[in-house]
Design a protein around this nucleic acid. Structure first.
Lengths: 394, 394
DNA sequence: AAACTTTCGTCTAAGCATTAGACATAAGCC
DNA sequence: GGCTTATGTCTAATGCTTAGACGAAAGTTT
């Protein structure tokens, strides 16, 4: 006799990992609902739920309203007291955050730092602060750690690629600094990419996140996954060439987007006003200084022209701007209008151009998403259960 | 007692579908090799192979060389006599091809057509020619049909999107025209996207395919899958705006890439030489007409500038040029040099810029890939087996 | 030609996960 | 208290998968 099965896509959630995934995605399902959505037998499902409960993956939450008989109880993903530590490093500041499993910040501290300093001198204070922040919580369990950097990161290993922004750091400096304190799942990602992931609303969306701070970074998320390209340089839009004879860029070429629109370029242009820091510029923009506003407008216009090409190539649902410069309302407004006029209507329509969440929050959220994915990926969970069963038997 | 299992990624090929996938990807594996790679038991594997053989999915091929004992026999995916029909429609020509399961053309015929004519008057002759070509083969089984169009196509349904190039076609005109003759798996795709897929070498690569014919099309393949974007307009680079006050484009705006570099733009520029067709231009380029060469060079230069932005955004492994204009050696050369100078070295290095296979072949290959994927996707095969088992039991 | 080696093909008993379904209990509603 | 629905546990049956045996097949080596 053959059993009626659900289409594999929806409910063939037979394994522990997929069942957990189902519970984690739906916020609270009753046993009854799980039985019908998965199509599993009572005995099997209960065994699975039992195991997942015993191992602390799920718990039984409040009852749902009764429909006449005994009320069912929600089964929930065990997120109570589970936290992720996110270290988001920028060029000049770093934030240490404790987040819940959905990426919401619970506690955080921001510090000044100099990213070009030796790796350990930058990282160890942050790690130490992480330890302190963790101690402030009661009954919290740390699940994993995420670190974002304003530099290219190798996809699989999390190694820092040798590059101008972080000259002295060895590839595995972050891994070592963190692993020395916590032997837990660790994810390292470029800051713009982490923020892009943190800004995405649904898994179906294509999001382009552009960070304009000291430099220009960009993260592209297509259907929930980060676009990396052949050598991990996808989204390196700061070096789109806007003209053959433009200003000199740090990369040695002329006319790069970053030489027009980055915070560094603005600082150079506005240096004579005594604005020596990027934050000075955003502050001056707030006061309405006309020269500053004009400079921002020019920068935004060039960026908008470049992004028009990027947007035309990718047809995203959303274009999100962030960073100290990128997030300024006037800047967003100007970029938006330029992009929307330069992009053909078919692509522009329905696309949202907007300022992102405060940068740390976005990156923090993205990092938590990555950490959670790494730990609770169905296959990873199944593997873990299989390994434990094996070692118990062997 | 617990069984040692292979890592799920590699060999956990327990189901019929995944086993078939494994056999299909490796070209000829012995039973012995299958046993060790999958980790399945002899009995189970043999049952699976038996079923797959009985249903005509696989067959036993020639023996491998002996290593001292009885030689093993290769198990092969059943591709003998299996063909796919590919209809590749351009603006002015259409090709009907019979391909083997790897996408290699076996027989083909090319016709002149006018894409702006009513759908049925374009499609029915091609379908009829397809029937004739199929009759020429002996002992061939048609697995499915692929159709590529020089117009946007809706991803899931294969419906033609209402657009300027094909004004009179109803969304489902292609589906109806084909399904009336063959009730088989059908895939409909945009021509540049099909070609992009047809050009890809490995599933790990990111490939940007740019077709310069009458218009400019572009297909982007990331890790084997086609990038579509929010409304399916990803890769619509013909309307990247190259200047605010450039020539008028058909879309009503000024300065679009297509107004500089498309075959149509070249034809307009070279009209006074009596070159009224795109093919005339490529012919004249072959004879070395200096005015034509200069026009091509200019067009290529602008395209190269636009592609530099696209390439910087995506960091592809390969940039492939195709189409009547795009495939011209001088054109490729010029685009390549412009892209490679405009793109920052980190991205340019390792990237290959090259002319694609003749356009029909690439699109044809891509279509076959899509049809084969649709039919032999592991899940689809498993579903089929499950359904049949159920109906046999019920 | 005989011995050797390796694969092939089939079969069996055992193991294990999963299932259908029974049965008792719990809990809210009328 | 009766009704209804969900929960919790248990059992026999089912059926897929496995380990492993066994012999035949088909080459190589001696």
């Amino acid at each position: 006799m053959t059993v009626e099965r659900m289409p594999a896509s929806l409910g063939g959630a037979t394994s522990h990992g997929h069942l957990l995934e189902l519970i984690r995605s739906a916020d609270g399902l009753s046993r009854q609902q799980l039985l019908s959505t998965t199509g599993m037998s009572r005995a099997t499902l209960y065994e699975r739920l039992d195991t997942l409960t015993r191992r602390g993956y799920i718990y039984e939450a409040e009852p749902l309203g009764s429909t006449g008989g005994r009320p069912s109880r929600k089964i929930r993903f065990q997120d109570r007291g589970r936290v992720v530590l996110a270290l988001t490093l920028g060029q000049t500041h770093g934030t240490v955050s404790i987040t819940d499993t959905t990426g919401r910040q619970l506690r955080s501290e921001t510090f000044a730092l100099e990213i070009s300093a030796p790796a350990d001198s930058v990282l160890l204070p942050l790690v130490e602060e992480g330890r302190k922040l963790l101690e402030q919580g009661s009954d919290e369990t740390l699940l994993g750690i995420g670190v974002s950097l304003p530099a290219p990161v190798e996809a699989g290993t999390g190694h820092v690629k040798h590059q101008t922004t972080i000259p002295g750091w060895s590839p595995d400096s972050v891994v070592r600094a963190v692993k020395a304190t916590w032997d837990l799942p660790l994810v390292i990602e470029n800051d713009a990419r982490a923020a892009a992931l943190g800004e995405r609303a649904s898994d179906a969306e294509t999001v382009v996140y552009v960070k304009v701070g000291t430099g220009i970074g960009c993260g592209i998320v297509v259907e929930g996954s980060i676009l990396r390209g052949a050598h991990g340089s996808a989204g390196d839009i700061g070096h789109i060439r806007m003209s053959a004879d433009g200003p000199l860029c740090r990369c040695g070429r002329h006319g790069c987007l970053a030489a027009y629109s980055s915070g560094r370029a603005l600082r150079d242009r506005l240096g004579h006003l005594g604005l020596t820091k990027i934050d000075d510029i955003s502050a001056a923009a707030g006061t309405g200084d006309p020269e500053v506003l004009q400079a921002l407008s020019d920068a935004a216009d060039v960026l908008g022209r470049a992004l028009a090409a990027t947007v035309t190539t990718l047809n995203p649902d959303r274009l999100v701007l962030g960073g100290q410069i990128g997030g300024l309302p006037d800047f967003v407004e100007k970029v938006s209008s330029r992009v929307l006029t330069d992009v053909v209507e078919r692509i522009a329509e329905g696309m949202v151009v907007e300022a992102g969440h405060p940068e740390d929050l976005a990156a923090c959220h993205g990092l938590t998403t990555l950490v959670m994915r790494k730990i609770f990926a169905p296959d990873a969970v199944d593997q873990l259960f299989a390994d434990e069963a094996e070692s118990a038997a062997g």
